[in-house]
Design a protein around this nucleic acid. Structure first.
Lengths: 217, 217
DNA sequence: GTCTATACTTGGATAGAC
DNA sequence: GTCTATCCAAGTATAGAC
């Protein structure tokens, strides 16, 4: 962990209480980002949710932004741990799309990607934050890339669909679909799209790629 | 236009000056959304950019949010006018992807989609704003839909790719790619993806759809 | 219509008691 | 480590002079 408290010395009981406070603040920060957004995720708002004092945000994390980045770390780690297993088993395009659909639905319900999007958007107008958020996005991109690589292994499509490029598109697609689903308060359009993609994927899996069917005209 | 000023009576000169002020405020609001984001797009920040007094924001638009919505309207209208012509001429998947790439590049440079994303994100934590932003997003979705419809007209792919669903995916993809390109301060990944899509599109255009090529194993 | 001045609120951050 | 108290900066919004 990057942060272990501003001071070095403390008893076991104090350490434990400190750890509890820090955990509560991080959870509260995640909730605040999801429910009221970056612009209203103030130290006071977060402390109220955590049931502690506003000053502790600065004591433990130095600044509100510091705490919000810790919240993004937490979400990122939890999510990667859960999903690595899921996509590790996808050895075809069809299964990859099925995994993607499941992940999208769970993310939307849990609000994971909302947290990420809030931070990405906030970073647009703050170069320093941009680098930090970008670094925390890398593992998600890597996960998508290895999933694509695995799903395309041995398929003639691999030559036409470089994993890095496709992974970038997948991450972008997730972000955009989440943005729209939250705005509409309706995920059905996104889910329908996943279903459609699944159909096409199984077609590609069966035929082994794009065939060169002669025109029928 | 929805707003014509809080009062009814004024001389021509006053109307003209008022219109100038309103236009300056809208332009300044667009710039503020792009450069410092929703959370810092305050009445004072916008008025400073417009070279006028902070109180005029409230006089002309009632609230900061009212002005920001007017800014979104302006961007939406300008953008639609420009791009309707572009996609109207796309009668194949290849040309559709080419149009999409051109639009993406221009949007990114001009910051149009940044404005939209700022408002969408802000709307996540404000239900009232959500409806207003959603309504302003509809024309963009419609534009994408009619473009897809036109590009697929007469193609066997049309049956497999319903225009409404695909359009939703396209809008989501634009938003996500823009989000990532701004974060990375680098559009090359997105542009590479468009190039890849163009290649696949021309393949589909040539073969007339997904062929059922027998497996070679 | 536009300005100045101001009332009121909220937020970041720190000092110092406990 | 945690709290109370406080300072200061910035924001929304309105009243009233010009």
């Amino acid at each position: 962990m990057a942060k272990s408290g501003p001071r070095g010395q403390s008893t076991d009981a104090e350490q434990s209480r400190s750890a509890d406070t820090r955990a509560a603040l991080v959870l509260a920060a995640i909730g605040a980002l999801r429910e009221v957004g970056f612009s209203r995720a103030s130290a006071r708002e977060i402390a109220r949710r955590a049931g502690c004092n506003q000053a502790l945000v600065f004591y433990h994390y130095g600044s509100v932004t510091g705490l919000l980045l810790a919240a993004l770390d937490e979400v990122s780690e939890r999510r990667l741990a859960t999903y690595r297993g899921l996509v590790g088993r996808a050895d075809s395009l069809t299964k990859l799309v099925e995994s993607a659909r499941a992940i999208f639905a769970e993310d939307l319900a849990a609000g994971h990607v909302s947290v990420l999007i809030e931070m990405i958007t906030a970073a647009q107008s703050d170069a320093g934050l941009g680098d930090q958020v970008g670094a925390r996005l890398a593992p998600w991109r890597d996960l998508a890339e290895s999933a694509v690589r695995e799903a395309l292994a041995g398929s003639p499509l691999a030559a036409m669909l470089p994993a890095r490029e496709v992974a970038h598109g997948i991450v972008a697609g997730f972000l955009g679909l989440e943005l729209l689903a939250n705005l509409d308060r309706d995920a059905s359009r996104a889910l329908a799209l996943f279903d459609r993609a699944r159909m096409l994927a199984s077609l590609l899996d069966l035929t082994g790629g794009l065939g060169l069917l002669p025109r029928t005209e």
